[in-house]
Design a protein around this nucleic acid. Structure first.
Length: 488
RNA sequence: GCGGGUGUAGUUCAGUGGUAGAACGCAUGCUUCCCAAGCCUGAUGUCUGGGGUUCGAAUCCCCACACCCGCUCCA
C-alpha cells in the first residue's frame, strides 16, 4: 500500500512553505511542469552543488579513490539545450521517440503504424491488429516524445529542431573539444548539470515524472579493458553518495538490469532506486541510472546511427545501402601516447535526476514527532530533517524577547553569519512558534539571544532533531556552525 | 492512452439553487526569559476555467484544464 497520507501531507507542506509550486498555477496549471519556491530552490541548488563539489570541483586527481582501478581526472561542461537535429537522429532518439502510432479503442493496445502488417493483436485467436471484428483502430497519430521547435523565424521542415531529451549527447559531441583543449588523459570524466525535456505521455507522481527536468550526468571515458571495473566503481560510488546525504539505506537499493531491460546502447546498467511513499509497498523509483555504454555513442557520432547486429552493433543502412542517419565523420578516437594505440574509449554513465533526488530528500526528511509545549505537554511537531548540507536555511537567529537590546545583538549575529551561509532572522511571535517555523523549513540550528547573552556574550544553539540546547560564545559561533554544517 | 476520484482563503476543510464560512497559518500591536501561549487589530477568494439552464449557480447540465488513485507506459 502506497503511503498516500504521507504524500498528501508532504505536498501541502511543500506548497505552504514554498518548496514546490505547480507551474502556471494561476492559469490552472500545466501538466508535467513544476516550479521551485524560495525554499525549494535552495534545497535543489544545494543538492546540485553537493553533486558538483563531490564529483567535479572537489575531485582529487592525484589519489586513487577507494574501489577505483586508478586515479582519474574530472572536468565540467555546460552545453546548449537545442542542438543540431542530426545529433538526435544519430543517437537513436529520433527514431525511438518519434513514431506514428495506432491505438485500438477496444483492446487499448498500441501499435506502430508501420508494424500493423506484422504486429499481433492481443485478442485471441491471434490475428493482425484490425482483423478482429471488434477491433477499432484510430488513424495513425504522431507521437513525439521529444519537444519540437523551430530555429529561425521560418517554420519549415529544414528549421525543425528538438529540445534535448538528455544532456549526455552534448558531452559526446564535445568529446574532441575537451580532449583538444583541457590536457585530460584517459581515464577521465566530463560532468554536466542541465535541463532536459521529454514529452511524457503520463506525467505522474508529483515531480517524479515531469516533462521538464534537470539531470546531473557524468560521461566517464576509459580503456575498454578497464571499463567493467570502472562500471562497478561508479555504481557503488554513486549509491554511497545518496546515503552520505542522509537517505536511509533500507529505502535505497541498487538494482542491476537484466538483459531484456537494457537500453538499446547498454551492455550493463544498474539503477539507484528509492522507495518513494507514492509507490506500492516493495516498489522503488529510479533516482539514477549507471550505465555501461561501451563505445556506442562515440562510434555513432563517427559512423552513423547504430543498430544491434549479432553480438555487436553496425551502422544502420537505408535501402540504397547508405547509412540511414550518417554520423559526423570526425575521428573521435583517443590516442594513447604510452601504448601508441588509437581506439574509441568506452563510456560509463552515471546519470542522476536532480528533481527526483530533491523529491527523495523531501520525502526522507518529512518527520512527525513530539515536542513539548510551554506547559511541558507533548505536542505533534512536523520537522524536515534535511542533511545540513542540503538544508535550505542553515541557521536562524532569534532574540528571545524584543527588548533589552536583544534584537540588535541578534541582527549583528545574523549579519555576521550571513556572510557565509543562508541564515534567517526572526523576531516575530513566541520563541516556540519561531522554532517550529524553522522545523518545517528544515533549519538545523536555531540561535537565541537571551538575558545571559547580555552578561557573558554567549547564546543558545538549539538542535533541530534533538531539541537540545548548548551555550556557545558569540565569537565562536561561526566556527561552531562551520564544524556542524560542513563536516560530512 | 483507459477507468475512478477530487478541485471553495496560504493550508486543511465545511457550505446542495437565494449576502462566501471555520480552524490553523500570515500580518499588526501589547504581553512574554526557551519549544505551535494569551489578548488586540487586520489582510487575503477569477468558489479551477469556459459555456449553458435559471429571476438567481460555489451548488444543476455540458466541455475543457489540473491534481490524486488504479491500469498502461517508462525509450
Amino acid at each position: 500500500m502506497a503511503d498516500n497520507d504521507l504524500m498528501s501531507k508532504l505536498m501541502s507542506l511543500c506548497k505552504r512553505r514554498g518548496f514546490i509550486f505547480q507551474s502556471s498555477e494561476i492559469y490552472g496549471g500545466i501538466g508535467g511542469f513544476w516550479d521551485y519556491g524560495p525554499l525549494g530552490v535552495e534545497l535543489k541548488r544545494n543538492l546540485k552543488d553537493a553533486w558538483w563539489r563531490d564529483m567535479v570541483s572537489g575531485h582529487d586527481d592525484t589519489t586513487t579513490p577507494q574501489g577505483a582501478p586508478s586515479t582519474y581526472e574530472m572536468v565540467g561542461l555546460d552545453c546548449s539545450i537545442i542542438m543540431h537535429p542530426q545529433v538526435w537522429k544519430v543517437s537513436g532518439h529520433y527514431d525511438l521517440f518519434h513514431d506514428m502510432l495506432v491505438d485500438c479503442r477496444t483492446c487499448k493496445a498500441r501499435f506502430r503504424a508501420d508494424h500493423l502488417k506484422s504486429g499481433e493483436c492481443p485478442k485471441k485467436p491471434s490475428k493482425r491488429p484490425g482483423e478482429h471484428t471488434e477491433c477499432d483502430l484510430t488513424d495513425p497519430r504522431e507521437f513525439n516524445l521529444m519537444f519540437k521547435t523551430h530555429v529561425g523565424a521560418l517554420f519549415d521542415l529544414a528549421s525543425e529542431a528538438f529540445l534535448r531529451p538528455e544532456t549526455a549527447q552534448g558531452i559526446f559531441v564535445n568529446f574532441k573539444n575537451v580532449l583538444d583543449t583541457s590536457r585530460v588523459k584517459l581515464p577521465f570524466g566530463i560532468a554536466q548539470i542541465g535541463k532536459s525535456f521529454r514529452n511524457e505521455i503520463t506525467p505522474r507522481y508529483y515531480t517524479f515524472r515531469s516533462r521538464e527536468f534537470e539531470q546531473m550526468e557524468i560521461e566517464f571515458f576509459c580503456r575498454p579493458d578497464e571499463s567493467r571495473h570502472w562500471y562497478t566503481y561508479w555504481r557503488d560510488r554513486r549509491f554511497a553518495w545518496y546515503t552520505s546525504l542522509g537517505l536511509k539505506s533500507e529505502k535505497l537499493r541498487l538494482r542491476d538490469h537484466d538483459a531484456a531491460e537494457l537500453s538499446h546502447y547498454s551492455c550493463g546498467t544498474a539503477d539507484v532506486e528509492y522507495a518513494f511513499p507514492f509507490l506500492q509497498e516493495g516498489d522503488f523509483g529510479e533516482l539514477e541510472g549507471v550505465a555501461h555504454r561501451g563505445d556506442f555513442d562515440l562510434r555513432s557520432h563517427m559512423e552513423g546511427k547504430l543498430v544491434r547486429s549479432g553480438d555487436g552493433f553496425a551502422v544502420e543502412l537505408d535501402a540504397e545501402g547508405k547509412p540511414r542517419h550518417p554520423g559526423s565523420g570526425k575521428d573521435l578516437r583517443y590516442f594513447d601516447d604510452q601504448t601508441r594505440e588509437r581506439f574509441v574509449p568506452h563510456v560509463i554513465e552515471p546519470s542522476a535526476g536532480a528533481d527526483r533526488g530533491t523529491l527523495a530528500f523531501l520525502c526522507e526528511a518529512y518527520t512527525e514527532d513530539q515536542a513539548p509545549d510551554e506547559k511541558g505537554q507533548p505536542q505533534e511537531r512536523v520537522v524536515m530533517k534535511f542533511h545540513p548540507r542540503l538544508a535550505p536555511i542553515k541557521a536562524a537567529v532569534f532574540p528571545l524577547v524584543k527588548r533589552d537590546g536583544m534584537p540588535d545583538i541578534g541582527q549583528d549575529i545574523y549579519r555576521e553569519l550571513k556572510r557565509r551561509w543562508n541564515v534567517a532572522y526572526d523576531e516575530g511571535g513566541s520563541i516556540g512558534r519561531r522554532y517550529r517555523r524553522q522545523d518545517e523549513s528544515g533549519t538545523p540550528f536555531c540561535i537565541t539571544v537571551d538575558s545571559q547573552t547580555l552578561a557573558d556574550q554567549t547564546v543558545t544553539v538549539r538542535d533541530r532533531d534533538t531539541l537540545e540546547q548548548v551555550r556557545v560564545a558569540m565569537k565562536e559561533l561561526s566556527s561552531f556552525l562551520s564544524e556542524k554544517l560542513e563536516t560530512p
